[in-house]
């Protein structure tokens, strides 16, 4: 049994997977307050049962949200003595959206900081990154190649570009079953996608 934890974006999402089957899931768009909701959601989901491994969204997304999920996962892993693995929020959204349509390519756009978007483009078959992660202003992100754009920033990107199809989407923990194995065993470390704002003074 696998526990999936996703709090990197506006969604607070958890799932229990048995191989490729969804045993149970909780998916809420909370915006904020993940730190209060997350562990009670996991407690409801697991009901005292211990999973065999934990998968956690490492970002990019909200800096705080990434850490809330990772810290919870690390604490749970110590107590249960189980491994923790990471995956990318953008890969998860790509996998979830490929499963719902026919598109061969997909650009994922998530709202980042300072009006920028986290942008990454994926190919369906085989599932892989076509254009690597960048943090871009919408005008720069308009160069994204795929017709279909998914994510919290999809409409912003499509509006800036003037064409294409936007699907507003947030990472859904249960979609981790759709990720190729290699993309859900990343080291459990944050993928911030952007440096801190502070600049050295000396």
């Amino acid at each position: 049994m696998l526990l999936v934890i996703d709090s990197a974006t506006e969604a607070c999402s958890v799932a229990l997977l048995d191989e490729d089957r969804i045993v149970a899931e909780r998916h809420e768009i909370v915006g904020r307050g993940h730190a209060e909701r997350l562990i009670p959601m996991i407690a409801e989901l697991t009901g005292g049962m211990k999973p065999d491994a934990i998968f956690v969204d490492c970002g990019p997304g909200s800096f705080t949200g990434i850490r809330v999920g990772l810290a919870a996962a690390q604490g749970l892993a110590i107590g249960w003595s189980v491994p923790v693995h990471g995956y990318s929020s953008l890969a998860l959204i790509a996998a979830g959206n490929f499963a719902q349509g026919e598109a061969d390519q997909l650009t994922v756009a998530l709202h980042g900081g300072h009006g920028q978007l986290f942008v990454e483009t994926y190919a369906r078959e085989p599932f892989r990154v076509l254009e690597p992660l960048q943090s871009l202003f919408p005008a720069e992100a308009a160069a994204a190649p795929a017709h279909l754009v998914a994510g919290s920033g999809a409409e912003t990107l499509v509006a800036a570009r003037g064409h294409g199809e936007a699907v507003t989407a947030y990472p859904r923990a249960a979609d981790a079953r759709l990720l190729p194995t290699a993309l859900r065993v990343l080291p459990p470390r944050p993928l911030y996608g952007r440096a801190p704002d502070a600049k050295p003074k000396m």
Partner: peptide, 14 residues
């Protein structure tokens, strides 16, 4: 939040 979330994870699992 990092310390508190880690503690909550420990609390639930242990």
């Amino acid at each position: 939040m990092v310390g508190l979330m880690t503690a909550k994870g420990l609390s639930l699992s242990a």
